[in-house]
């Protein structure tokens, strides 16, 4: 299955695998979870850091990602765990 991933608030804005708007398409095995996707992404700039995720328009808690299965055409938004600004 293919899902779209949008990276935001990242430096650089568009790491390898993502277009100039921070959007990339990724292929996953059927039945893969949101957690599997995050692991597969090997995100830059995040050594030891948590990433927040939204699936389509819903926020998904970090602790619940392994239980959230992905489906063809899902849109996942990923951003670093910013603690205020």
């Amino acid at each position: 299955m293919k899902v779209t991933v949008k990276l935001i608030a990242m430096d650089p804005f568009s790491p390898p695998g993502f277009d100039s708007n921070g959007i990339g398409t990724f292929t996953l095995a059927d039945g893969a979870s949101l957690e599997d996707l995050i692991t597969q992404l090997k995100l830059p700039d995040g050594i030891g850091e948590a990433y927040m995720t939204m699936l389509n328009e819903d926020a998904v808690p970090i602790s619940g990602r392994a239980e959230v299965p992905l489906s063809e055409g899902d849109e996942v938004t990923v951003f670093p765990a910013i603690k205020g600004g």
Partner: peptide, 14 residues
Amino acid sequence: GLGTMAMMDVTQAH
């Protein structure tokens, strides 16, 4: 790197 301004894309998406 991006400063506090990085937050705007986050609150927009959220």
